[in-house]
């Protein structure tokens, strides 16, 4: 297979820099995104499967794939698939994002009571 046939996420065997043995403490917002995916994928039947999430992430533009952090890609890929499956609409997401941004700007609470601090640290 030539590299011309590779999708962006398909990087096995390519050249890259030395592995940096890095990790970090997961942030509450990251854990909330992870929990959303699990809650939707572990339902029977699943609202979204892990393969579908994977496709959603693989289809992100390369600049997003390489440019944002791990759980940001998860929520981007997840919402793409949820819109595709008519679980959510683009319009309601856009409207709610504006509402969320306005509430944050006003210093109002956004995260549901009881969820906000869960999983702080790791």
């Amino acid at each position: 297979m030539t590299d011309d046939t590779r999708q962006h996420h398909d990087m096995g065997g390519l050249d890259a820099e030395t592995v940096q043995p890095s990790t970090h403490e997961f942030e509450p917002w990251e854990k909330r995104i992870e929990a959303l995916v699990r809650l939707l994928s572990l339902r029977q039947p699943p609202i979204i499967t892990i393969d579908e999430l994977r496709r959603g992430i693989e289809e992100l533009p390369p600049e997003v794939y390489d440019g944002v952090s791990y759980y940001e890609k998860w929520i981007a890929g997840l919402t793409e698939i949820l819109v595709e499956k008519d679980v959510l609409s683009r319009e309601e997401l856009d409207a709610r994002m504006a509402d969320v941004a306005a509430r944050k700007a006003a210093g109002e609470p956004v995260v549901e009571k009881g969820v906000e601090n869960s999983g702080g640290g790791a």
Partner: peptide
């Protein structure tokens, strides 16, 4: 109180909408 970037707001919006639609509730997330 919360990160305010595009993807953070997207995550908060999606979570709120999914809760309102009854897929799960806040305690399920926790």
């Amino acid at each position: 109180d919360e990160p305010t970037g595009h993807y953070h707001n997207l995550a908060d919006a999606a979570r709120e909408l999914l809760i309102e639609k009854g897929y799960f509730d806040g305690s399920d997330v926790r």
